Computed example of a mutant assay.
Amino acid sequence: MTQSMNNFELQTGESAIVLSRAIMLYSRQGAQGSLGDFLYATQHKVENFGTEADPDFQIAAGQPVTREAIVAMFEQLAKQLTLNVDFLPENVLSISADHMVWWMPACERNVFFNTKELGKRAAKVPHPGLVFAVVKSNWYVFALTGSERPKLDTPLCHAPYFNVYDDGSICAGSAARPVGIATGAIPQWEAAFFDSEFTHINGGERKASHPRGEYALWKELLDGVYQQFPVEYLVPKESTIAGLMKAIRKLMERK
């Protein structure tokens, strides 16, 4: 039995990984396919039956999987998921197999807007220091008033962006999120946030204290009024980096 597929690969940080083997699980006809239903397993190589220019990757004929092979495979996967051998740069605040928190210093980056109030606009504007967090399938961003690397007692502010909810979670929309958690993927996570269109304000809390509102703040930023982001308009979240870490631990404890 073979199954045709494209040249399937995943981008994980600075390198790509490709599909090389497949395991097929068999159960009785009519079973729901839950973990307790499987009775037999086969392992298969994934081979290119086409050419390098026109690949045709397929799951080739297989052979029975032994108990020893399954145990060895999952032990190896467990090591890969729990051990992170990336060099930890200064901007990484916390990392594990299921989460990563990092700091982006204040800088200038392009932003893209597509709203009724601002129209369709793009410009390179100043941004405050930011803290990003990826926890399992959740993605968050928060703002900082200071310019130094945050500590546990550093206060957090609402990120003053559209497409961000009151709890800091990011509405990804059509943004292509990177696969996997690795320090090498940080530029891709940041690009996924900044390269997507900001289309609407999420949540009920104000994300910026500009006297004429958030649209007025971003209009001024797009018009080049500020050389640095006006941090006096950031709204405190009544939380700190330590509070964020505590919330992350709770999320990671959920199944």
Rank of each mutant, 00 (worst) to 15 (best):
145 T>V: 14
168 G>T: 12
87 F>P: 09
96 S>M: 07
85 V>E: 07
110 N>E: 10
128 P>Y: 00
133 A>D: 05
80 Q>G: 13
251 L>H: 14
166 D>R: 07
215 Y>N: 14
79 K>S: 15
103 W>M: 05
67 R>Q: 05
216 A>C: 06
152 L>C: 00
230 P>S: 02
158 H>T: 09
134 V>L: 04
174 S>Y: 12
32 Q>C: 03
3 Q>N: 15
129 G>D: 07
191 A>Q: 05
136 K>P: 00
138 N>V: 02
144 L>P: 09
242 A>W: 01
138 N>W: 06
155 P>F: 07
215 Y>C: 13
238 E>Q: 02
155 P>Q: 08
101 V>H: 05
254 R>A: 01
181 I>K: 01
30 G>F: 14
162 F>D: 13
38 F>E: 07
82 T>N: 10
12 T>R: 15
39 L>N: 08
195 D>A: 02
228 Q>D: 11
94 S>G: 08
126 P>T: 08
30 G>Y: 14
159 A>S: 12
143 A>C: 04
101 V>P: 03
127 H>W: 04
134 V>E: 00
121 R>N: 00
146 G>K: 05
52 E>L: 15
47 E>G: 15
244 L>H: 00
222 L>M: 03
156 L>T: 06
206 R>W: 04
64 P>Y: 02
185 A>M: 03
249 R>Y: 11
202 N>K: 14
20 S>V: 14
16 A>S: 10
44 H>P: 11
70 I>V: 03
39 L>I: 09
78 A>T: 14
246 K>S: 07
233 Y>W: 13
164 V>K: 04
231 V>K: 10
24 M>R: 15
180 G>Y: 05
19 L>E: 10
136 K>I: 01
175 A>K: 00
8 F>H: 09
177 R>T: 10
